[in-house]
Nucleic acid binder design. Structure first.
Length: 899
DNA sequence: AATCCGACAGTTG
DNA sequence: CAACTGTCGGATT
């Protein structure tokens, strides 16, 4: 049952409030089945022996009380050991005016008028299997354990200088085994609680010198079926298997301090460890260098659900709802689930696999409970979901060990829940010896054959998911560049692709009818330049389609600085005719007939970057790039000071404007020296210093910078207009209806953070400031996260604009001047203020509107009614013009050949 | 010779 | 510290 349905149910409960039925209606609202509620009413499900109390295993303890006693009663009830044995998630008391409730697991409390319960319905969502994840409080155990382990790790590394000689593999396995032992002794995997830590404490010397031999011995014991000949303190340890203790490793040397820390680790309560995120925490603490590399990041559970739900979970739940009354179909659904394969080709420490595993087991529990309601089970039932259905590839060896381990922990925890929830017929087989493990391969997923890890047999239902690493072209290391080359060899311009593209391309080749993929990515592969480079290879001229998308959401991590990234989730499948595609936004779900590579509902179109303008428009170029580390730049104060001190310097100083200065109305200046002026200019000490600093910076800079050492008094590129110029900011806020652009005098040096039209006809300003152009930029342009990121090649050169008459140009020019005049009326205001969508002056808005209409009349006489309509029209025009253009190119080439 | 990008980066309130 | 919004150098074409 989904959240909105539950909310509706609770609202209905309030509207038809019935005192006698209240608590049963409430449970029903969260999807507890009718039969369970009947049995609860009859009494055989009610575990309480106290009159007037209802105790429903793992769900709740409910009591009706007299007014004024609510808080004291709930205090007593939450401490009632008899009741707590049955793990009620909530304790609820009410006098049917006020309702007080407590969440036993999180400690959260609720105290509300009972008729307002619908406003707080989310409080009881754990009944429907929906946990609220508040990272700060709930990860306490994980964080504590992680920090302790980091301490142990640090000391072991210091005391064992040769520990990395094998690349660290030995150490990784060692740590993984220790974690298993800590967890096993605190849960009932090991027969005696605390036996690992206790035995270690009793049978090793305090100076730590024999801890390693003790552990070597113990690991051997854990890998041996028959331990009857072992020393008595080892004999109680069980046979673990599962490959965890199979290979012989050499435990590192311990010191007194290291022994102390390992014992402290053991004393922590490891039973509360949450395998969802524990792996990545341990990983990050153990190796901080990896925090932002190689696809290993803190990933939060809600974000993982954003992938899992649309990819397969929603569909499985739909099936469940559809066949709720048909036990045979429900058994078939369990069979289907037992055959699924889940494959994360960049699995890190296994977060996605673990969440997917847990979700499938939760669903299985719900199905079994429903089957039992329809046909009571008289024999015991075991889970059908196996760890061997889970596949992963991970480059980092430690992460890959953690993934395997975390899956075992998740299995153990879910077994417990399975037995708890299905207490009258659900059973779990003993976890030891470990039988199944996830198929996690250590290696480079961009180079490995995925079928070697996750073989696909005929008809296999496989879901590929995950969050592969992102790296823009400048962040890629040598190996990653080589990875891209190996995959995209023969394709053009692949070097500018983000590293994450490898997974999309490789995954698209792996897809079959029953194989689907949902990956998280940086949103930039669906914007601007990269769209044209990647998506034709992935979509394979219509054989593959995007069947769901979650565009543009922030994925923050807990690393220092809290640097985030804007992501999109993209679901791919082999094209299925008339498939209902879904776009998930913050607010709603859009039913789309098609999702294009820009992740919008619309026709499949990919706009390729162009070097020349498609329409009859003048050449636009980048602004002047300094590449000076700021040494050729001056603030207003610096400029005034130097001009006061050296009046001669004024001729070498120009006003300079980038996007920031233009939009926010800031003043900035730069040194602008012609070669033949250099000698005189260097007479001024201030200028000499600046030029020398710039030279030094360029000498130490990259390849490009070093070519500019000999002309350190100048910008890397220098362009100047004769009479006037239009500035078009490169990056600007997406909140604005129009990117602020404007005319500047011929002396102003426009920075590289803006583009320029030098000496333009004024009507061009009208074209690029129009609504039509803004719609185009928004749809096909690059972005910085979600900001507009204007570019000549993608936004301007591709823009379809019809050929117009001189008269039309004059018309447009009049409207251009009106816009400029309106701006003049508010000359005290900055562009940022004028173009703030909430504060834009009415006159300016109207002038823009009239300009928009004039531009739109160039396309057609009938006015456009919406941006969607504008865009559709533009796409059609674009296709027409591109076809014409390519035809023209072809004939040109032919003629050349003939000649 | 000219970009187009950023598991971002700097400012504000 | 969350919300807001645009720099600057360079690998690539």
């Amino acid at each position: 049952m989904n959240t909105s349905q539950i909310e509706k149910n609770v609202i209905a409960l309030v509207e038809n409030f019935n005192k006698e039925e209240f608590v049963f209606d409430l449970l029903k609202a969260y999807g507890i089945s009718k039969t369970s509620i009947t049995r609860l009413k009859k009494g055989d499900f009610n575990l309480s022996k106290v009159e007037g109390e209802i105790l429903y295993k793992s769900k709740m303890l409910f009591k009706e009380v007299e007014s004024g006693t609510l808080l004291t009663v709930i205090d007593d009830l939450t401490k009632e050991p008899e009741a707590l044995k049955h793990n009620p998630r909530f304790v609820i008391v009410t006098d049917y005016k006020t309702l007080v409730a407590k969440d036993i697991r999180t400690g959260a409390a609720l105290d509300i008028p009972i008729l307002e319960i619908h406003k707080h319905f989310s409080f009881f969502l754990p009944w429907a299997g929906q946990e609220k994840y508040s990272q700060k409080n709930e990860n306490y155990a994980d964080r504590k354990a992680s920090y302790k382990m980091a301490k142990l790790y640090d000391i072991l590394v210091t005391e064992n200088p040769n520990i990395y000689d094998d690349g660290g593999h030995n150490l990784n396995i060692f740590l993984s085994r220790l974690l298993f032992c800590f967890f096993a002794e605190d849960t009932d995997i090991f027969p005696i609680e605390g036996m690992f830590t206790d035995t270690l404490a009793q049978h090793t010397k305090e100076d730590g010198s024999d801890v390693n031999t003790f552990l070597d011995r113990l690991f051997k014991v854990l890998n041996t079926k028959d331990n009857s000949k072992e020393a008595s303190h080892f004999r109680e340890f069980p046979y673990v298997n599962g490959g965890l203790f199979r290979d012989t490793i050499v435990s590192p040397q311990f010191t007194r301090e290291a022994r102390k820390i390992i014992l402290e680790c053991g004393d922590l309560d490891w039973s509360e460890i949450n395998p969802d995120i524990f792996g990545s925490m341990i990983q990050a603490v153990v190796n901080p260098a990896y925090r932002s590399g190689l696809g290993m990041h803190y990933t939060s559970v809600p974000n993982i659900m954003k992938v899992i739900e649309p990819l397969f979970l929603n569909e499985l739940y739909d099936e469940f709802e559809k066949h709720k009354e048909n036990p045979k179909k429900l058994r078939q659904l369990i069979y289907r689930i037992s055959k699924l394969k889940i494959f994360d080709p960049a699995c890190g420490s296994g977060n996605f696999l673990i969440i997917a595993y847990k979700e499938l087991r939760k669903l299985e529990i719900k199905i079994w409970r429903q089957i039992n309601d329809l046909e009571p089970q008289y024999s015991f039932v075991f889970t059908e979901v196996k760890l061997s259905q889970f596949y992963g590839i991970e480059l980092d060896d430690f992460a890959h060990e953690m993934a395997i381990l975390s899956l075992w922990l998740a299995e153990h925890q879910m077994n417990k829940i399975f037995v708890d929830e299905l207490f009258d017929f659900g059973r779990a087989k003993p976890i030891l010896p470990l039988k199944e493990a996830g198929h996690i391969t250590q290696g480079n997923a961009t180079r490995l054959n995925w079928e070697d890890t996750c073989p696909k047999n005929d008809g296999d239902e496989i879901y590929i998911l995950g969050n592969p690493p992102y790296a823009g072209q400048k962040k890629q290391d040598k190996i990653q560049k080589e990875d891209l080359k190996l995959l995209f060899k023969g394709k053009t311009n692949y070097k500018t692709l983000d590293y994450v593209s490898c997974w999309f391309y490789k995954g698209s080749n792996y897809l079959e009818g029953n194989i689907k993929m949902g990956l998280v990515s940086t949103n930039s592969i669906c914007q601007g330049n990269q769209v044209g480079l990647l998506w034709p290879s992935v979509l394979k001229t219509g054989n593959v389609e995007i069947f769901f998308a979650v565009p543009n959401f922030k994925w923050t991590n807990n690393a220092k600085g809290n640097a985030g990234v804007t992501c999109s989730i993209i679901g791919l499948q082999r094209t299925i005719k008339n498939f209902q595609k879904l776009i998930y936004t913050d607010r709603n779900v859009i039913k789309a007939s098609n999702i294009n590579a820009y992740l919008t509902d619309g026709i499949d179109i990919i706009v390729q970057k162009r070097m020349t303008a498609l329409s009859a428009l003048p050449k636009m170029v980048s602004g002047n790039m300094a590449l000076d580390d700021g040494h050729l730049m001056l603030t207003e104060k610096e400029k005034n000071d130097i001009v006061n001190q050296y009046p001669d310097s004024e001729v070498y100083i120009r006003e300079t404007t980038g996007a920031n200065e233009f939009i926010k109305g800031l003043k900035r200046y730069c040194l602008w020296i012609e070669d033949d002026e250099l000698e005189d200019a260097l007479e001024i000490p201030f200028i000499k210093n600046r030029v020398e600093s710039c030279k030094k910076f360029r000498e130490n800079g990259g390849e490009v910078a070093r070519t500019l050492v000999d002309r350190a008094h100048q910008f890397r590129y220098r362009h100047q207009p004769v009479n006037s110029q239009i500035i078009i900011p490169l990056t600007s806020s997406e909140r604005r209806d129009y990117i602020p652009m404007g005319f500047l005098g011929e002396k102003v040096v426009i920075q590289q953070s803006a583009q320029v039209l030098y000496d333009p006809e004024p009507f061009v300003f009208g074209v690029i400031t129009s609504r039509m152009h803004m719609v185009w930029i928004d749809a096909v342009g690059g972005k910085l996260e979600t900001r507009y990121s204007y570019s000549v090649g993608i936004c301007y050169n591709t823009f379809p604009f019809p050929e117009i008459t001189q008269k039309q140009k004059e018309q447009i020019t009049l409207h251009v001047f009106e816009v400029l005049e309106e701006r003049e009326k508010y000359s005290d205001k900055t562009m940022a203020q004028l173009y703030d969508p909430d504060k834009m002056p009415k006159g300016l808005k109207e002038a823009h509107h009239q300009l928009d209409l004039a531009i739109e009349r160039c396309y057609r006489l009938k006015p456009f009614e919406s941006d969607t309509e504008r865009l559709e029209y533009l796409f059609k025009e674009y296709e027409k013009m591109i076809n014409k253009d390519t035809l023209l190119e072809k004939t040109k080439k032919k003629r050349k050949k003939k000649a």
